[in-house]
């Protein structure tokens, strides 16, 4: 193989520096930044770089991950100050002349390195009754027009990664706010024509910690790795509360 043809097939590799926020609950030390140099390829994502660190340099580096292509929602983290999924963030798309900063999502207690306590987040989700409530017992499928189905399509995409909620400055303040993800999941049912409990959910979100705490900073919409129009969904829920129905 000539030198030239070899070049075409090669995926270019380059070196990047990652600053990772480390915290070990067992060593009694405060959280700190630690830097790692990693050789990566053009197709590598931040998750690949973290794996390279874990597998080649420091096995104690801890983070959650599973599917590695943006559908399971395990690896939301703050990369260069923005909430993203590590498995959907190509390193070459970041400014690689600078170190890449990776830290846990904010507003939830850090358990270890990039792992946070997700329970308050899940609790907020469960609090909005995120399930279909319908009294009829159909023998076959319930009918639903394509338009009615389309009405809540956007909010069915949520993967509960918490990127939105933990990008919300209101959530950062005291963690009591329901947060964008819970409202998105309420929206998914409030606007489902088959559901009969929109009023119940609207009542839940018409709360001191409900939709009214939203300040429309659009951080959530920007953070959502699924491209959900989160702020719009929250606004639609506010409108629904004012109308008293979906």
């Amino acid at each position: 193989m000539s030198a030239e043809t070899k070049k075409i097939g090669e995926i270019p590799s380059f070196k990047v520096t990652l600053f990772v926020r480390r915290f070990n609950p067992e060593d009694g030390q405060d959280a700190r930044w630690q830097d790692f140099d990693v050789e990566v390829f053009g197709t590598d994502r931040v998750l690949d770089a973290l794996h390279k660190i874990k597998w080649e340099q420091d096995g104690s580096l801890t983070f959650r991950r599973s599917c590695a292509h943006g559908v399971c929602g395990s690896d939301a983290m703050r990369i260069n100050g923005r909430n993203r999924l590590a498995c959907k963030t190509l390193i070459k798309d970041l400014d690689i002349t600078q170190p890449i900063y990776v830290e846990p999502i904010k507003g939830l207690a850090v358990e270890k390195d990039l792992v946070v306590d997700m329970n308050p987040f899940y609790q907020a989700y469960r609090d909005v009754k995120p399930f279909l409530i319908a009294s009829d017992k159909p023998e076959k499928e319930r009918l639903q027009s394509a338009e009615d189905r389309e009405r809540f399509d956007d909010t069915t995409k949520c993967i509960l990664c918490a990127a939105c909620t933990t990008s919300c400055p209101v959530f950062w303040t005291d963690g009591q706010y329901f947060g964008p993800a819970a409202i998105v999941n309420a929206h998914r049912f409030i606007f489902d024509s088959r559901d009969e409990a929109a009023e119940v959910r609207l009542e839940i979100l018409n709360d001191k910690e409900g939709v009214w705490r939203c300040r429309t900073t659009f951080n959530c919409t920007e953070a959502c790795p699924r491209g959900i129009q989160v702020t719009k969904a929250i606004a639609e829920v506010k409108q629904a509360i004012l109308r008293g129905r979906a």
């Binding site: 846990p104 207690a109 329901f178 001191k208």
Partner: peptide, 16 residues
């Protein structure tokens, strides 16, 4: 660390 240290108390249901 800029996070809330302890798990939060459950949301108080204030129907405001």
């Amino acid at each position: 660390m800029v996070t809330i240290e302890t798990p939060r108390s459950p949301r108080s249901r204030k129907h405001a």
